[in-house]
Design a protein around this nucleic acid. Structure first.
Lengths: 356, 356
DNA sequence: TGATTTTTGGCAAACGTTTGCTATGTGAGC
DNA sequence: GCTCACATAGCAAACGTTTGCCAAAAATCA
């Protein structure tokens, strides 16, 4: 069924609720209630209306509804400046799980990319203050703020993901960075390693602080001095993982008392590091063990297969959405502590006892 | 019910245009014109209004505007079921370039994930027919259609990206899959290779058809029989690249007259294939040359570094948006032929003359 | 100075829904 | 038979903008 010649609704855009009402022989308000409010209208009338709506191919206008109800059914995800990494599928995975979870609850997902420019900040604030979005999930450490408007003091429900922003009053969904790295480091120690190279993300970054703390904790718990960990990197962002790893390989070559184990804080770093190291003649894991963070699928196909800490992006997305809808539903609820979804350590051939 | 006319503005939501008007001492309509329509209001009045708006932190309500004007300023991107691959950064790269281009033109980007379920189709159709979106960029080969409603016969401006859907009447932005593979294959031939393994994507898929045609064309042009190309794969989707490559390695081992060159149609395939092949004792490129498609950054850090065909995701995104805005601006314009953005062949160590 | 044009600002009617309140109809209780 | 309660449908007023049309003011011209 396509064009209907009963009524002439094809004038402006699609058919209107009024057209459905006319065709069904009822009032507009009855149509509205039939389509949205379950118990409020007679079953026979509803059937007639449903039929009419389907016949006309009627779709309610989202803006009109939104304006009247005063709420949108769109949620925005605020993504950091650069969206892509080397091999990690963070963005796609997060997007997919969040989008699915939102869809199941009748929400749409809008992308908002937060760069360093005031323009993108302004844009996000417009989305928030202009009533376009009903909530936000943020993957960036900076809350947009410009011209005295700030995301912080809107009533807009916000959930932080990946980063723990509980301190800023935002409910947060994170993974146990620290503990995961502690475990991986402990495993290295158990294998017999006593000197480490830690390849760092950007200094002061939440993840790097946590992960480094985890490594330190492991060596302390083993009764080792913190001195056994050398650091490389710290000045580049995670997006620059390959460059960080490459640089780390150079740093490694210059170390006098060479580590036997490497803890890279992203798969990208581990991959470019390994590539350079192997090219220089060292073997993994015979001469050097490697573990990294992220859990990119490709790690399984590296040579040798890379041990990595798999981040639960899918589950974090789901939990973040659940939390957000919670907040949207019941009004104010402050969260003091973040929700933690555990990462999973995957042991592969890149880790072995030191050869000496 | 509370309809106090003289409530302070902070009672309900943010400040309204009426509040700005009152503070500036002008009529609402003047505020509207001052904020949107350039030449229509006195400079002094405009300054007063701007000041008032800024002071109140006023942001116009997007839905009210959208309802009145009859147009939204949101564009949706329709993404195929699964969003992530092994190493390719397709989705993030496309998203980033599209989002940036849209932002510069005052549009928002909404995500629509098109699965195989009727629910996701219905959702997308609601977005289109409900006036939520002003246009769409589609990365999927299937146009949503359910209950007699179809994306095809809406007036909604649509641009197809990656896939050539000119045949279906959609303006398309694609890359030169066929020619790029032809070139890469020709380079293999020039190096001396005479027997090939082609690792295929899903059979009948646009990309696979094009890429295979390119390979065939190259061997024909070199005066070789089409028989020199063996095929592997064809039954799995590109998202399953690692599995395809792994399977291809097994297939390769069973071939009697072994190829000396492999043409993989995605980096994922090449990576898992190489991994398995090297594990079985063969060397790349000494025993086997490899080239693949996508241009994932990680290829540079594979051992050996992988030759690959780099897809211009960024530029395609920009062009797609430009084309879409074109169509939105000027009304109907049908495009018979796709816009082609050229891929770039990157030669790396995985390709060398055959050893024999 | 009066008539005509050009600016500029205001009134009020849309845009397509939802929803409080009010009719109308129907069955039960007295 | 009359009232009361209850279910169902309709009227009309929002929701916050934009914009066609007109009035007032200012500027130009005769």
């Amino acid at each position: 069924m396509k064009n209907n010649k009963d009524m002439p609704p094809e004038e402006h855009g699609g058919p209107l609720m009024a057209d459905v009402a006319r065709l069904a022989g009822v009032a507009i308000s009855t149509v509205s209630r039939a389509l949205a409010n379950p118990g409020r209208v007679n079953e026979k009338t509803r059937a007639k209306i449903d039929a009419a709506a389907k016949q006309l191919g009627y779709t309610p206008n989202a803006m009109a509804r939104g304006l009247r109800v005063g709420k949108s059914n769109t949620v925005m995800i605020i993504l950091p400046g650069s969206l892509y990494y080397g091999v990690s599928q963070v963005i796609p995975q997060v997007l997919q799980s969040i989008n699915r979870a939102l869809l199941e609850n009748g929400y749409n997902l809008m992308i908002a990319n937060l760069g360093r420019d005031a323009d993108s900040e302004r844009h996000i604030l417009d989305l928030a203050f202009g009533g376009t979005v009903r909530g936000a999930i943020i993957l960036s450490s900076k809350l947009p703020e410009v011209d005295g408007r700030s995301l912080a003091n809107t009533g807009l429900p916000i959930v932080s993901m990946l980063l723990d922003m509980s301190a800023a009053g935002l409910p947060s969904v994170v993974t146990n960075d620290r503990e995961a790295v502690r475990e991986a480091t402990a495993e290295m120690i158990r294998l017999g390693h006593r000197r480490f190279l830690y390849i760092a993300g950007p200094e002061d970054n939440y993840h790097d602080v946590e992960r480094y703390a985890g490594a330190l904790q492991a060596v302390r718990e083993a009764g080792l001095s913190e001195e056994v960990i050398s650091r490389s990197g710290g000045n580049l962002d995670y997006q620059e993982g390959f460059a960080i790893g490459t640089q780390a390989a150079a740093d490694f070559a210059r170390l006098t008392d060479r580590p036997t184990a490497v803890i890279a804080t992203s798969d990208d770093m581990a991959i470019s590091f390994s590539s350079r190291i192997q090219r220089s003649g060292l073997r993994i894991p015979e001469d050097l063990s490697v573990v990294s963070f992220d859990g990119s699928p490709v790690c399984e196909f590296c040579s040798p297969p890379l041990s990595t800490i798999s981040q639960p992006f899918e589950e974090m997305g789901q939990v973040a959405v659940a939390r957000l809808l919670d907040i949207i539903g019941q009004s104010e609820k402050e969260w003091e502590t973040p929700i933690v979804v555990r990462s999973r350590f995957i042991l592969r051939e890149s880790m072995a006892p030191p050869s000496s």
